[in-house]
């Protein structure tokens, strides 16, 4: 589903974020990207979502070579990818419902479909009944769950999460990770960047460890 081949990324300011990174993530797999901050975890996710372009090597997502994808097709490509952010990036001037509905509105769903799917997504993250609230009034764990609901509401093939538990205490983190596991069980390919080693080791999924932009620990199965 996600295939990195000798991918290098250097930012315009000269910072070399990734050096020749290769890995494969099969359809329906769940895996973690780990490493110290600045190691390149976020860059990997940004390259998959086409927020950044590779300098060398290539990335194939769902059979599409991202290097060959034109600018105009990027929005449509992104609709297949759910994204969850550390600071959740919710729009605080809108209700929970409107936040979760945004990907559907963008994709042009009808009113009834939007309403139905938003409720279903909020139900899955355990926030049904809070759709009329403003995200500001929610706890940080709940806000992150709204962010996850928004990430999955469009039923994406791939779910990317960048430090989704970065601001949460261990118990809430565990809860959030369980949520991701549940979506993975539904067949969504999940890639999570996290430095919460103790938590992710315990979960027993594949881990890609980055150090200074190089993959040092690829494809190692970490049994609990």
């Amino acid at each position: 589903m996600i295939h990195f081949h000798e991918v290098s990324k250097r930012y315009p300011n000269g910072y070399q974020a990734l050096r020749s990174v290769s890995f494969d993530l099969t359809r329906g797999e769940m895996a973690f990207l780990t490493g110290h901050s600045g190691a390149g975890k976020t860059t990997v996710l940004r390259l998959i979502a086409l927020i950044e372009r590779v300098n060398r090597g290539h990335i194939i997502v769902g059979g599409e070579n991202l290097s060959r994808m034109g600018k105009r097709r990027i929005p449509y490509f992104r609709r297949h990818i759910g994204m969850v952010f550390q600071n959740h990036r919710l729009l605080m001037d809108r209700t929970v419902f409107d936040n979760v509905a945004l990907p559907l509105v963008i994709a042009g769903y009808s009113h009834q479909d939007v309403s139905r799917r938003v409720r279903a997504a909020l139900d899955k993250v355990g926030l049904l009944g809070k759709e009329r609230l403003n995200p500001v009034t929610l706890s940080s764990g709940e806000q992150q769950r709204v962010g996850i609901a928004r990430g999955v509401v469009n039923k994406p093939a791939i779910l990317l999460a960048d430090e989704p538990t970065g601001n949460l205490d261990p118990e809430l983190s565990r809860e959030i990770m369980t949520l991701f596991e549940r979506f993975n069980h539904f067949g969504v390919t999940v890639l999570i960047a996290s430095h919460d080693l103790s938590l992710i080791r315990a979960m027993g999924y594949r881990m890609f460890t980055l150090k200074n932009g190089t993959l040092i620990d690829a494809d190692r199965m970490t049994a609990a």
Partner: peptide, 17 residues
């Protein structure tokens, strides 16, 4: 605009008629 999923193994996003 062409759907990205055409010819790829990404599931089609809902495209209204």
């Amino acid at each position: 605009m062409r759907d990205v999923s055409a010819g790829s193994d990404l599931p089609r996003s809902r495209r209204p008629s």
